[in-house]
Amino acid sequence: MPEIRELAPKPTPEQFASPAKAVDSSAEVVSTRRLTGGISCRMDVLEFAASNGKAEDTQQVVVRQYGPWHESDELHPGTVEAAVLDLLDRNGVAAPSLILDKKATRIMGNRTIVTSFIDGRPELVPQDERNWSEQLVAAVSKVHNTPLTPKVKKLLPNLYSGFDRLFTRDEPTDNISQHPLGHDLWQAAKDLWPSVGKTEDYLVHADYWPGNTLWKDGELFAIVDWEEPRLGEPTWDIAVIVQDAACFGMDIEEAVISQHRIISGRTLKDYDFWRMSVALSEMPDPGVWVDGYRALGGIALTAKNVRDNHTASVEQLLARV
């Protein structure tokens, strides 16, 4: 059976009060609530007011406590996320702002950061697919254009080490082998791997699917979940957008490629390879994610729908080679 990992415990009233007062010494806690989602950390919204208690003076922040299993990580995701959020904020990228870092950890007794709260929800069922996809491209292109600092370059691993291990194997992994088309797709990607460009000049989100974006009134407000960014080829993030949408039954490839070319002025390098790699990462059964999709966006899909959509996308990719 897979290991069951417990998230950090619910903060006590005293613990909730402390970060509020660290932000505003006169703050009084108004309310707290748990945010859904988050595999590696517990997330709570903390609302507090200044001592005058006026409703218009309330402020909301997010308290992100990382799971205790990360304590032995060589590079803690809290350290990575704090550094990247600071970089993004200084460059005007749509993401939560870092409010407290090491001070939050001292208060909570475990690795914690406090960020700004952004009022929005993931948008998984767009009314206008083209506008939705173009906004996704525009937002992540700002990430890719963010100048890298020496600190961030030193902190972040590159995108390629996992793929190097995957494509230097003699056979695909068990997860890939369990899919009927897994071996063929793995072999096609493996054949392309030696010629793939491996730049480390760009910040890549590395998990840029719509569940990691926040929207309101049809507008993308922020990209969230910065625990595992990488240095690497931006095409990976673009391929994730297209392949994830394919699993939802949406064909946005043409719109995404066109918008990326307009915004960035760059071509998508090794695009088919990165699409294949995303599809491989979804094996053996992307249908297991359907409950999560529904919880985030009310998608009316069954596990079979997602599997069938994924298989159809793999068949199309194989037809290209």
Rank of each mutant, 00 (worst) to 15 (best):
S72D: 11
S72K: 09
D73R: 04
R90C: 03
A94K: 15
G109A: 05
W132M: 01
P126C: 07
S116M: 07
V140T: 14
H144K: 09
F117R: 06
I107L: 10
S133I: 08
P96L: 04
G78I: 00
R165S: 11
K153P: 01
L159V: 08
V80Q: 08
Q127K: 14
L88A: 01
E129S: 11
F167W: 09
G92Q: 00
D73A: 12
P77H: 13
G92S: 03
L75M: 12
S161W: 14
A104I: 06
S133N: 11
Q127T: 14
R111Q: 12
V152H: 02
E123V: 00
G120D: 02
E81S: 08
V152K: 04
P147H: 03
V84N: 06
E171A: 12
S97D: 03
L136H: 10
W132I: 01
N110L: 13
R121I: 10
K142E: 12
H76C: 07
P96C: 10
L166N: 11
Q127H: 11
D89C: 10
E81N: 03
D73N: 15
R90W: 00
D89K: 12
M108L: 10
R106E: 12
G78C: 08
F117Q: 02
I118P: 00
G120V: 05
P77Y: 10
I99T: 14
P147W: 00
V140I: 14
D86V: 00
L85D: 08
V80D: 02
D128E: 10
P150S: 13
R165L: 15
T146S: 02
G78M: 09
